[in-house]
Design a protein around this nucleic acid. Structure first.
Length: 878
RNA sequence: GGGGGCUUGGCGGAAUUGGUAGACGCGCUGGACUUAAAAUCCAGUGACUUAUGUCGUGCGGGUUCGAUUCCCGCAGCCCCUACCA
């Protein structure tokens, strides 16, 4: 890499101090009454995990480029930053390293803030928020109570992962192969009373409104759609032969195949199974086997479908002479539908497998449309397509669609069933048995039940003096914190010791940023509404479902509770940045032990080209490239890079090559090229003398002198075209193209300077260079700011309007048009842009090369696409 | 099992959305400057070919005057989701 031509560290610090002094990126918290449009750009805020890595840099730089561009284009820009403070890693640090989660979190925040600030981001730091601050979460507690009063919150019993050794509830990621991650003890399922949010209430609206989100990636919309999982079917009632008045309901999307039913199956936690198990020890055993299996088997593909034959039969709802065996089975889920199915082996692969295992009849009731009454061979697998009904009494001969309609009508008529809409999405369980989260503001009283904490008593703050060595939930173990009196009857009562899912904080932070320090309310409605919805949200695809869906639910719930009017969608445009990946490195592991990951900087290639742990020279296991994450330690620290090359170089480098939505494999090769470009700008800028006339630079590009030489004229045209392209590209995250255009223009103006030394060419050179600085400023703000100060001491680059191109200069008066013969380019001609098709054709056919090629050929047809191409279709003359 | 995506020189990637494939950069090669190196500048750089040319956007087909772009089939890689009745 080149020797620095200027001291980037000093220059960048100075620039950042100047911006701060001028308050350029600060937006007052108030209602605007000017006509200036507003633009809210938000990157998903970081979890304070320790240090920033290059993935963060790429993410926040791309948002910053947009914020700076929009600012120059005349918008009030809101571009804030905050911290998603609550989370499990803080608690893990407490358990493993005996630091307090709060201290750990705030220390990380301070580190990361400092690191982010070195990038020179155009952020209004006065709006910084931290979600683990009671000033933030007290409003969340109020919201929770408001949701409760609107019946959007309720309590119910739900299963959790319970570690019997640690005496604690485990998050899904803390369950490894069905065992507790620390205790290695088999995890149990336990029923606990939990709080849930009624997101299912809004399932239909959340689904329908996806169609309005036309500035979201279609994959994200599809994923949400599948997650909500609406299906149309029927609920069918099966009565039990042995017990009069007992029945169970089955949900099916294929009621048309009902005559093919050969068994029924219930989930192992279905009430009828639980009941039967009371007198059947073997069934009890089967249930617990299935429940443990359920947690351990991540790969369900090879899992056997098992059943336990229950001591009763189901009566076929269409023919009470038929009774069907009923199984408790591991492939039926209580969480979906009604937790019970009827098995139709011929038309469902799972049922087919099950029938094969237990020797149940396989009756085909749908025939392929093509089969036309021919005899059907026995099935080797389930036939799941639509077709024509057979073996189905009154349904015979109908197609699948009309059979469905008929059977549902029939079932409704006999009272055995009804059409049903089913959603896959569940209500959102928000209780977590953890310390480092927002306390749920409820008090449990033996006589009054669950009572909300009175608003004047909010916030319910987390106690600092907690003991993590006891295991379990420290809030529950705290000697005094949970003991309170009931707000209603004043009798001794217990505080809720569960805290909220950390997705709760991130579901409304975008609204808090609008009015971040309001002590009384979560945010002022009018102030929030002038910014919302977020115009451009930026974040990873991993949040495609949960975070984005919860936020969408929240904006609806907040509207219901009067926090917002008419804001239903929180993010009008969404951009998914690509992942930044890197190989993983680990010491060779012994069986049964967890990987000991190594950070890339701890390894190096030895002289034989083998990657080793640098300190010990031990060869390391090189794993495949994965998304950078703290857990795999495959992160790259940008701090050293910023020190060596400067923030501008790092900023330019991370957005230069790959399109921002593409997954990239991190490599530092090429960063020298980014620095070279900046050095080149610096050298060129230093050649220019300060502007003595104190010209004020507006959006308009100045008019050049008359009669420029052709090269200068071409540069001037290219300049306008570049402004056009870059303006578009910077707004659509096409930074790689924008940079390429600017570099091409730089090459052109440099060669103009080399070849022409007249005053007019010099003028073109200087003016073009000024525009280059303005176009590239959002990407490399420091060096451009400093250079502008040199050449226009009375202006601040960040306050200049965005340059506007003149369409007159982007039109070509002379065009190069290729001539094809049968689709192959044979020659090129220069023609005036307004040449008619006939003229072009005439010129083309007169070219010597073309005449040569058309010798012995007969022209059949000529296609002239104005200002594009000419294609001559010819064939050998006969 | 279901859904989505990707595949262009040695590498990252462009391509006006069906019209000059390889912009811009990295790397590499040669040259200038230098005692030498670094830096900088100049030239070259898809393959084959002495050249005119020929081939070339994962593979096979199709539509079209014309396909990296649209359609069908196949392969490889990646992501999401999953016993969803």
């Amino acid at each position: 890499m080149s020797a620095p031509s200027f001291d980037h560290a000093t220059l960048e610090t100075q620039c950042q101090q100047e911006w701060e002094k001028l308050g350029i990126f600060h937006v007052p918290v108030k209602k605007f009454n000017d006509s200036k449009p507003r633009f809210y750009v938000l990157e998903m805020f970081p979890y304070p995990s320790g240090d920033i890595h290059v993935g963060h840099v790429r993410n926040y730089v791309m948002g910053d480029i947009l914020a700076r561009t929009k600012r120059a284009q005349g918008f009030h820009v809101l571009h804030p930053m905050g911290w998603d403070g609550f989370g499990l890693p803080a608690e893990n640090a407490a358990i493993e390293r005996h630091v307090h989660p709060k201290d750990w979190t705030y220390k990380n925040i301070n580190t990361m803030r400092k690191q982010l600030k070195t990038l020179g981001l155009a952020i209004d730091w006065a709006r910084e928020i931290t979600t683990c601050d009671p000033e933030y979460y007290k409003h969340e507690q109020k919201m929770f109570i408001d949701f409760f009063h609107k019946d959007l919150v309720y309590q119910s019993e739900t299963y959790v992962n319970w570690d019997p050794v640690e005496q604690t509830v485990l998050a899904n990621e803390q369950v490894v192969n069905g065992k507790g991650w620390r205790s290695n003890a088999p995890v149990e399922r336990r029923l606990l009373p939990q709080w849930s949010l009624r997101i299912t209430l809004m399932a239909e609206d959340l689904l329908q409104a996806l169609d309005t989100l036309d500035k979201w990636p279609s994959e994200v919309r599809t994923m949400q759609k599948n997650w909500i999982g609406k299906s149309l079917g029927a609920e069918v009632s099966f009565s039990i032969k042995e017990h009069k008045n007992t029945s169970f309901n089955v949900y099916t999307t294929r009621p048309d195949t009902l005559f093919g039913a050969s068994f029924c199956a219930l989930a192992v936690d279905h009430p009828l199974v639980t009941q039967a198990a009371q007198s059947l020890p073997q069934l009890q055993e089967f249930i617990s086997t299935c429940q443990n299996e359920k947690l351990s088997e991540a790969a369900l593909e090879n899992k056997k479908k098992e059943g336990f034959l229950l001591p009763f039969h189901a009566v076929h709802p269409l023919d009470d002479s038929i009774s069907l065996p009923v199984y408790a089975s591991n492939f039926v889920l209580m969480e979906y539908g009604t937790g019970a199915i009827f098995g139709c082996p011929a038309h469902d692969q799972r049922d087919f497998d099950f029938a094969k295992t237990y020797n149940l009849p396989i009756t085909q009731v749908v025939a392929p449309t093509s089969s036309q009454n021919k005899e059907l061979p026995p099935l080797s697998q389930a036939f799941t397509e639509d077709g024509i009904l057979i073996n189905s009494h009154f349904l015979n001969g109908m197609d699948t669609t009309s059979a469905k309609k008929h059977i549902i009508e029939h079932l409704e008529h006999t009272g055995k069933g009804k059409p049903t809409v089913n959603y896959r999405i569940h209500d959102w369980g928000v209780s977590r048995q953890r310390y480092w989260g927002c306390p749920i503001p409820f008090i449990h009283c033996s006589s009054c039940g669950a009572v909300p904490v009175p608003v004047q008593d909010l916030p319910v703050t987390l106690p600092y003096d907690v003991d993590f060595s006891l295991g379990g939930n420290p809030l529950d173990n705290h000697p005094s914190w949970k003991h309170v009196s009931c707000p209603t009857c004043k009798k001794p009562a217990l505080r809720e010791t569960d805290t909220l899912d950390t997705f709760f904080e991130s579901s409304w932070y975008f609204a808090r940023f609008c009015d971040p320090h309001n002590p009384d309310v979560a945010f002022d409605k009018d102030i929030a509404q002038q910014w919302l919805p977020v115009h451009q949200y930026i974040g990873g695809i991993e949040h495609a479902v949960m975070h984005l869906l919860y936020s969408r639910f929240f904006s609806r719930a907040l509207s219901l509770c009067g926090y917002l009017d008419e804001i239903h969608e929180p993010f009008s445009s969404l951009f998914n940045q690509g992942m930044v990946c890197h190989e993983t490195y680990a010491f060779p592991t012994e069986k049964g032990k967890t990987n000991q990951w190594l950070a890339p900087h701890e390894t190096s290639l030895n002289k034989n080209g083998i990657r080793v742990h640098t300190q010990s020279s031990t060869p390391v296991v090189v794993g495949r490239s994965e998304k950078m994450s703290k857990s795999k330690r495959n992160t790259i620290d940008p701090v050293a890079m910023i020190e060596t090359y400067g923030a501008d170089t790092v900023r330019l480098f991370v957005v230069s090559d790959s399109p921002l939505d593409r997954t990239i494999e991190w490599t530092e090769s090429g960063i020298g090229g980014a620095r070279r470009f900046i050095d080149r700008l610096w050298r060129t800028g230093c050649l220019l003398s300060p502007d003595e006339h104190n010209t004020t630079h507006s959006a308009l590009i100045p008019t050049p002198p008359q009669n420029l030489n052709p090269q200068a004229r071409d540069v001037w045209k290219q300049l306008h075209a570049t402004v056009k392209h870059v303006s578009q590209d910077l707004q659509t995250f096409g930074t790689n193209r924008a940079i390429a255009h600017v570099r091409a223009l730089c090459n052109a103006i440099d060669s103009l300077k080399e070849q022409h030394h007249d005053t007019d060419s010099l003028w073109v050179f200087e003016q073009s260079f000024r525009i280059v600085l303005r176009l590239i400023a959002p990407i490399i703000p420091h060096v451009t700011h400093a250079l502008w100060k040199k050449i226009s001491p009375n202006e601040t680059l960040s306050l200049l309007p965005w340059p506007q191109y003149d369409p007159l200069w982007t039109t070509q008066e002379q065009l190069t048009i290729p001539i094809q013969i049968n689709g192959k380019i044979r020659d090129k001609i220069n023609v005036p842009a307004d040449a008619s098709r006939e003229t072009i054709e005439k010129i083309a056919l007169a070219q010597p090369k073309i005449i040569q090629h058309l010798k012995n050929q007969q022209v059949r047809k000529t296609i002239v696409v104005a200002s594009r191409i000419i294609n001559i279709v010819a064939s050998p003359s006969t």
